[in-house]
Nucleic acid binder design. Structure first.
Lengths: 255, 255
DNA sequence: CGCGACACTATCCTATAGGATATTCGGCAT
DNA sequence: ATGCCGAATATCCTATAGGATAGTGTCGCG
């Protein structure tokens, strides 16, 4: 009845635009809060606490939580509630980045290949809506604006990688990448602000290579970007860990 | 308060076997039914129909359905119910197999590498529980028994690939593979019975290579297995499609 | 002073009722 | 005969109440 706030960012669940249920809203809102680190990793989520806070009933909250749990962002302990999945350990982080290093360069290569193939056979207009993705990709690469909040940057970063994945033409690869991305997003909060410009430059290089239809260059650019990104994250990673050790207080974010 | 008498299984499960809720049971049961093709692709699932059929309330059913939807096995149309995701089109199938071809050979290689590494440094006993996975892997490869039902075979097939993924040591890769596997499972129902022995031989070859700690051989064996498997599936695929065209009646499996 | 048992509280899980919406079927006009 | 429109139905979505369970704090005893 109340709280029908607009949240255009999620495209996950429903294909139809006008069919939003309260469960969808709750899902989007909770996911956004996790992404924004308003719900700290390790925090405990109480069902009716969230229900009261969002002014929903328990049922849509429960549905949203089930979805988030299946996505890997939440952990469920059967009779004691949901908790936000904690930050990845060093090993888990390496593992995740490992798979990412396998998927994303491939996606970049595919994107360039696909663009080339379609430019070749259909120089004119019509058949496939490829122009959209490519243009969006370039936009996404540029979006890390010079002096905005860190939150906007992490979101733009996510969007760019998502756009590349989308351009690859493989929905399965795109899905896999998006899934990994959701987990990494929590760690993005710990990057150093100085590296934003660096990241943007690398993104632009990737976008250029794709739009120039150079598959190998795109793949290599993405690989280089991920390598450097891994180093950047690792630096922030140890710093965050040190901080976490110095403050072992358990965060609580429910009500 | 009612409907507790006719279900003796749930109390024992919840009390003895750890932490199972009705939602978990509903999820497992529904997933099993989908896997067994008792719920045909495209079939419509009604929430309270399922609730009545499983003698649960709507809430656990709803939670289970939300999880299955997030897993990609069900599609949700916001105000008109859930439907079982239809069989993949040829293009989608190729796309999925493409990613599989990327992931699974890698997993096989990793499994062999990991086994070799751990055999090298810890010849004796103790530290890591690696013996379990390797042994389970060999068992899983053998399980396609000569003359059982087709259902048992498809399940064993799934288990074997799952075991290899598990042995890779990368939880992310394992998760990705498992996800793809769930989708492929529906198509496994259409394979020809003659190819069972063939599949088993290929599985055994993979397991042998892994246990012999030959990474490249394992990778190649898996790749070959997938290639052949793709062909086998493709044959059954066109057959199933022809049949589907001849019988365009919409399946209904709710109540 | 440490440890175990007990009771209490908070929370989850389940069940049922009511309001809102999409789908469907029948009738009518063209 | 076909297409459009309206009412009835089925289903979903939401809300609230009650029973059961895990976690926590306190008290008593060794």
């Amino acid at each position: 009845m109340t709280a029908r706030a607009a949240d255009p960012a999620n495209r996950t669940a429903a294909e139809a635009a006008g069919k939003r249920t309260l469960a969808d809203d709750a899902y989007a809102e909770l996911k956004a809060r996790i992404m924004r680190s308003e719900l700290a990793p390790g925090a405990k989520l109480s069902i009716d606490g969230m229900a009261k806070e969002l002014a929903f009933s328990q049922t849509p909250i429960r549905e949203a939580l089930a979805r988030l749990e299946s996505e890997g962002l939440l952990a469920r302990r059967p009779l004691s509630g949901y908790t936000v999945e904690p930050l990845l350990s060093a090993a888990e982080f390496a593992d995740l980045f490992d798979l990412r290093m396998m998927l994303e360069p491939l996606a970049a290569r595919r994107a360039a290949e696909r663009l080339a193939a379609e430019a070749e056979l259909g120089g004119a207009a019509a058949a496939e809506p490829v122009q959209g993705p490519a243009a969006g990709l370039f936009d996404a690469a540029r979006t890390p604006h010079p002096s905005a909040g860190k939150l906007e940057f992490t979101e733009a970063d996510r969007r760019f990688h998502d756009a590349v994945a989308e351009c690859s033409g493989s929905v399965q690869i795109a899905k896999a990448i998006r899934r990994l991305d959701a987990h990494l997003h929590l760690h993005r909060a710990y990057i150093a602000p100085e590296s934003i410009g660096e990241t943007e430059a690398e993104h632009l290089a990737i976008a250029d290579a794709i739009i120039a239809m150079k598959p190998l260059a795109a793949e290599e650019a993405m690989r280089r970007h991920l390598e450097r990104s891994k180093v950047r994250h690792a630096a922030a990673f140890t710093a965050a860990n040190a901080e976490a050790v110095s403050k072992p207080k358990r965060a609580r974010a429910n009500r």
